[in-house]
């Protein structure tokens, strides 16, 4: 019945983590709405949300980073399929495999670089503009998201032609 019937425990964990990150991302979007509304209403009475600008940027980064695994899992990134569809079955299998291996490497690279970037923020003491909030953990969260996305890409590599999570 389910497109995922017969999948392993590892797939289960991957799906749970993907959904958990998406939930966090959704909360971050809700947070942007909440902070902005509170700021707009508050400043009419001289009580703005201090650093609303900073908060919106950080929440936006959290939302988009946490959305990465979900977007990959539903194959949400758009591509030009036209020429690919014209290839033979073998050709498609080869191109598809090579492409997914390249993407796997790319997400690995991104995860590694995000770790280093967070490390850089930590070492230099860089903080947000108004709230002076440390930011090193935001790239680290993005690194985690990239690792999970790499996992999803691996799943797609091992299960050709299927989406890990079915798009609605």
């Amino acid at each position: 019945m389910s497109p995922l019937s017969g999948t392993s425990a590892r797939t289960g964990i991957l799906r749970i983590v993907t959904h958990a990150m998406a939930t966090l991302g959704g909360l971050a979007v809700a947070g942007i709405i909440g902070v902005t509304m509170a700021d707009i209403i508050g400043r009419q009475f001289g009580m703005p949300v201090r650093g609303a600008y900073d908060l919106v940027r950080v929440l936006g980064a959290i939302a988009m980073a946490c959305a990465l695994p979900l977007t990959k899992a539903v194959k949400g990134h758009i591509a030009i399929e036209y020429f690919f569809q014209k290839m033979g079955r073998r050709g498609r299998a080869v191109v598809d495999t090579v492409m997914r291996l390249v993407l796997l490497a790319l997400f690995g690279l991104l995860a590694w670089r995000f770790v280093l970037q967070g490390r850089g923020f930590l070492d230099s003491g860089e903080v947000t503009t108004t709230l002076h909030m440390p930011m090193f953990w935001v790239p680290w969260l993005a690194a985690l998201a990239c690792l999970v996305t790499a996992g999803v890409t691996l799943w797609h590599l091992l299960h050709p032609g299927r989406s890990m999570i079915r798009p609605r």
């Binding site: 709405i33 940027r57 929440l59 936006g60 988009m64 991104l110 995000f114 935001v138 790239p139």
Partner: peptide
């Protein structure tokens, strides 16, 4: 190039102006 990769992604994700898109 590797340094730029993470920076460009991070900068896009944390762009104030682009938050209008999810909203």
């Amino acid at each position: 190039a590797l340094y730029m990769l993470a920076t460009d992604y991070y900068d896009t994700f944390s762009s104030y102006g682009l938050t209008v898109i999810p909203l």
